[in-house]
Design a protein around this nucleic acid. Structure first.
Lengths: 204, 204
DNA sequence: CTCATAATGCGACCCAGGTCGCTTTATGAT
DNA sequence: ATCATAAAGCGACCTGGGTCGCATTATGAG
């Protein structure tokens, strides 16, 4: 949206954007969901309120922008040599990313904030599409190795591994322990091996 | 919270509560997340704004009340004779509940609304705790039948079956098809059979 | 039937979120 | 260096969510 469509990528616009995004993350870090107010961001960044509304349209657009920015920073897809190892590594990454006592609050609050706005929710959809696409690579490799049957829906394996973590964190509000993350990976692995992610043939 | 703690369960309080909750559901039905405003509910129910704030404290409390009310209406846990059949029935119930072209909007918007408030999110946690507890029965039966290994974490099987549906609907925003629901059940079944939900012994 | 009072109705009020028109600044092209 | 203009600053203003004090109603007890 507000990627490189800026007419003047020179100093000022960039500085303002950086200031606002930094302030947003900072606010997200110590504050949380409810404290993420335009006033606070304006106060912290020193940018005028009207400017923020003009460029982002409000909190929603701001969160969406933060999200789309985080997509641009790719991560290293694990490659341990086995599907089980890779899935465990992925769920562990998620687990650590969200539960780290210091840095975990930022992504956690970011997702929560994104869930609270229709506009940002769309950005979230794109975010996960990207992440799923990247992560699906571990399944493709496993198919090539013959670990799981050909025709296995790679993205669905990833979804199955990740879903329980997000489910706990953001839907049911249950605590997320390390063991739960491991189990989710284990379950996805077992299901994939059993062929649960093959295109179904009969309506059952 | 606001269950039977009402001092005057007689006509008026009950009428007001019914009117407000009905109006909330109605608003949830046709409107959606963002249209769920106090003004709209007040206008539709004929109840005064101040009354609503006094009794529920705002939209958050109202949603929480609607949620806790829906918990009281228990559902029939399926018993098809096999774990696979039961899990499929459960995910199908969820699928139909949320995707029904007419009635589906209400629970969908209700969850979305609940996700948007700290207070209602707590009510959601209780809601899922109850649902999980009920649904876990199908796993307990399967353990007794010897379908899955003894020691299997029943609630975790249920979580694994349900998580992908909620994940799609409320986190990633992907569409939820019937096939995806079936696959989730299938995956949970396969994983349970393979012993993925046994207490782990070694740190792996 | 009467009465104390819980609960709602009512409207004025406050204030934070968001908008608007204008001014000022700084970017990038000439 | 100059200049047209995109973008940010600025403050007044508007709107609507949320609160307060008081009047009114209806409930349930005696």
């Amino acid at each position: 949206m507000s990627e490189e469509s800026i007419r003047r990528p020179g100093g000022r616009s960039a500085r303002v954007r950086a200031a606002v995004l930094d302030a947003t993350l900072a606010e997200l870090a110590d504050g949380g969901y409810d404290q993420l107010t335009v006033e606070a961001i304006v106060a912290r960044s020193g940018v005028h309120k009207a400017t923020l509304y003009r460029r982002w349209g409000g909190i929603d657009g701001l969160i969406a922008d933060v999200l789309s920015r985080s997509v641009e920073q790719p991560w290293q897809v694990p490659d341990t040599g086995s599907l089980g190892g890779d899935l465990h590594a992925i769920t562990r990454l998620i687990y650590e990313g969200f539960t780290d006592p210091e840095q975990g609050a930022i992504p956690r609050n970011l997702i929560v904030a994104a869930l609270r706005s229709s506009q940002a929710a769309q950005a979230l959809t794109g975010f996960f599409e990207t992440q799923h696409g990247l992560a699906a690579e571990v399944v493709s490799r496993a198919v090539r190795r013959g670990e799981v049957p050909e025709g296995t829906d790679a993205v669905d394996v990833v979804r199955t591994a990740c879903a329980p973590l997000y489910y706990r964190l953001f839907v049911t509000g249950e605590p997320l322990e390390e063991e739960a993350a491991g189990r989710a990976a284990e379950a996805a692995l077992a299901a994939a091996r059993a062929g649960a992610f093959l295109p179904r043939e009969r309506p059952a």
